[in-house]
């Protein structure tokens, strides 16, 4: 049995949930098993049943609304681990999200299972278990084996495509999870309005010191808007507080792996490249033709950002309108 954790927010499934479901389904198929989603909280049975399109066989749901705002990973881990034991699960799949990073280690300890974090491919399950994951902050990959029967894997964001495999409907069954008192309480949530989440974004528009000052970020925001992209920045920009620190992409900041990463006025220090290496396509706009970033780019534009970016925005608007 392969079970996976269903992450949701305000009644909707999160993007990582589809990736996790697709990963679990592919693994279940590969091991001639079933994939079962565990949902804690209020999500409509309809949207859970629709996970069948991604290969999910069944979803077990505890509709108790207390889980909707539960931020104590210990409470969630207890419920997930109990289900894993009851279903005799061999694999537990959890997204490598903010919540997943708190949840997965706790589940693994409860199950005495090895945890392989941030996997980027399906494991080899014939013979010795082997799975690929990112290491050295994007500067390498490691193939890992695990010495326990039960294994917990977290799936890196944007690494495994959420592919619909059919039109099946997953069976949704209710259950009552074991619970404990919460020891971490959410006081408030501050969502950045209309912003695409950086770690989940398909497209990221990132800018560096070449922009000269925080007042010049208007065109970066506009470019991101046109593309439906998240905005990011280099470390010096975050350190000088031109942009909030959660936008800092790089080895000591956030690691991203979007389909498209557009770097504007960023020279491409090795620490920055480490954080963006796994992007599928990289576009670099820089007036210095010797900027090291060009060596790591797929497409390059040698030119002044203040001239190139407005032209790019115009071209994209024309393309979107056509």
């Amino acid at each position: 049995m392969v079970i996976f954790y269903i992450e949701h927010e305000n009644g909707s499934l999160k993007k990582n949930c589809y990736e996790t479901a697709a990963y679990a389904a592919a693994l279940a198929q590969q091991t001639q098993s079933q994939s079962v989603g565990i949902c804690l909280g209020s999500v409509s049975a309809e949207s859970l049943a629709a996970l069948g399109e991604y290969g999910t066989n069944k979803v077990l749901q505890d509709t108790n609304a207390r889980f909707d705002t539960e931020v104590d990973a210990g409470v969630l881990a207890k419920a997930v681990a109990a289900q894993a034991q009851q279903l005799n699960a061999q694999y537990v799949i959890i997204p490598h999200s903010y919540l997943g990073r708190a949840l997965a280690p706790r589940v693994s300890v409860r199950l005495k299972a090895a945890l392989v974090p941030a996997v980027v491919e399906m494991p080899d399950t014939e013979g010795k278990f082997l799975v690929k994951r990112g290491v050295f902050s994007g500067k390498g990959f490691a193939y890992c084996t695990a010495h326990t029967t039960v294994k917990v894997l977290t799936v890196a964001a944007n690494a495994f495509p959420a592919i619909k495999t059919g039109t099946s409907v997953a069976e949704v069954q209710n259950f009552t999870a074991e619970t404990t008192d919460t020891r971490v309480k959410r006081i408030s949530v501050e969502k950045l309005s209309n912003k695409v989440s950086l770690t989940e974004a398909d497209i990221v528009v990132s800018a560096g010191r070449g922009l000269k000052g925080p007042e010049n970020w208007g065109m970066i925001e506009e470019l991101a808007d046109v593309l439906g992209a998240a905005t990011a920045c280099s470390r010096p920009v975050a350190d000088t507080h031109w942009r909030p620190h959660h936008e800092h992409v790089g080895q000591t900041g956030v690691t991203v792996s979007p389909n498209l990463y557009i770097a504007i006025g960023i020279s491409g220090a090795i620490q920055h490249l480490a954080g963006v290496n796994s992007s599928k396509v990289i576009v670099v706009i820089n007036k210095d033709p010797e900027a090291p970033f060009f060596k790591a780019a797929d497409y390059g534009v040698v030119g002044d950002a203040f001239e190139v970016v407005p032209k790019l925005i115009t071209a994209l608007k024309a393309y979107k309108a056509s």
Binding site: V71, R183, V184, K185, R186, I187, E190, S197
Partner: peptide, 10 residues
């Protein structure tokens, strides 16, 4: 958290 920040107490 994804797309924002939360304040928690423990």
């Amino acid at each position: 958290i994804e797309g924002g920040e939360e304040t928690v107490e423990a």
